[in-house]
Design a binder for these strands. Structure first.
Lengths: 189, 189
DNA sequence: CGTCTATTTGAATGTACTCAAAAGCGGTGG
DNA sequence: CCACCGCTTTTGAGTACATTCAAATAGACG
């Protein structure tokens, strides 16, 4: 079901074959076609999703109707409205497929069970959250420290494939600027 | 040594008395007086610090010499340059005491040892990072979605004591605006 | 081929910025 | 205890940059 997930787990923790099988037995496979939503804001996020194939984005919509992208997720990464998931409160984020995608869903109550029966998972998610935390901190710091143009350059050098897979309108949203501003930044290069 | 830490641990995980004692035996107590640095950017962050008393801030300095505060830490919270700590690379952040403070330092190599000998710690830090991650995401989202004035209001309603303990110049830096702008925002209230 | 969305371009606007300076405040030493 | 000094906060004026609004062009997809 999840060779990719299998590798992902094994790369971070020592985990037995039967533990992986158990883990995978709790996952639900789902396909999400382009532009389709995996999560709608307002409903509780009942899962974390491991991306097997494709690309998704999570975003909020502000009071003026402007979208703000919190995360792009590609193969081998997890995506969710984590705050909603952890507190089982209505989501503030939407999650939408940028490409036709395939995800493995892990349910909230199942995750709690799995933490108990596969102790190594605590370590796995500890490392995952640790990395997610530091990269979000770095992104926040960039947002506060450097110009949109520099952030754009940083982004395309760190994730060059993103430009090919994601429309600029979403890149602009991720960077916190308008599509018009991004267009002008790109013209100057 | 750390009644506060003791409570903090016990609130999140099941942990035995002797495990807490073991944990605490690896901690080094240190006082940091106001304006003194606990960490200088450029040197490797060898510790995570649990704040027993006082208030510290972590911040970066950008190419124009402007400070950007990544975190305020008060009693019962941890502070570090986590990226530097985890990768044992030179820190990009400075950590400075805003008030006379007392911290308990946990060394990098000791933490790895403790993860092995006290399995519950994985869970403890998993939860800690999980929370840190979601709150940083929410802060990032606020930075991109709402005006500085609204972010200021959000901050003082969420952490009213911060205004009393931290000079406005630092609040401005945390919000990503100049002290002049913050002063004007406050005048309009 | 036609429609819908993404991207680009232009012009006018506004908000936060910089720079400069004054006022306020806290702490230290004589 | 008061005077001074340094740092914080406020205020003012001019500027710069991304934004908004509008419209044209380009691309993707059925």
């Amino acid at each position: 079901m999840g060779e990719l997930l299998n590798k992902n787990l094994s790369a971070l923790i020592d985990i037995k074959k039967e533990e992986i099988e158990k883990f995978e037995s709790f996952l639900i496979k789902r396909t999400v076609s382009k532009k389709q939503n995996l999560l709608n804001h307002g409903s509780v996020c009942r899962f974390v999703a491991f991306i097997n194939k494709g690309c998704l984005r999570s975003y909020s919509v502000d009071a003026n109707g402007i979208e703000h992208i919190t995360q792009f997720g590609v193969e081998n990464h997890w995506i969710a409205d984590l705050y909603s998931f952890l507190n089982q409160t209505p989501a503030t984020l939407n999650i939408e497929a940028v490409e036709d995608s395939e995800v493995l869903l892990l349910d909230f109550s199942n995750l709690e069970k799995l933490y108990k029966s596969i102790p190594g998972l605590e370590r796995y998610f500890r490392i995952l959250f640790q990395n997610a935390y530091t990269s979000t901190q770095r992104r926040l710091n960039s947002t506060l420290s450097i110009s949109a143009a520099d952030r754009y350059n940083e982004l395309i050098t760190s994730y060059p494939e993103l430009i090919r897979r994601v429309p600029l309108i979403h890149i602009a949203s991720y960077l916190g600027i308008t599509p018009e501003s991004l267009s002008r930044i790109r013209k100057r290069l």
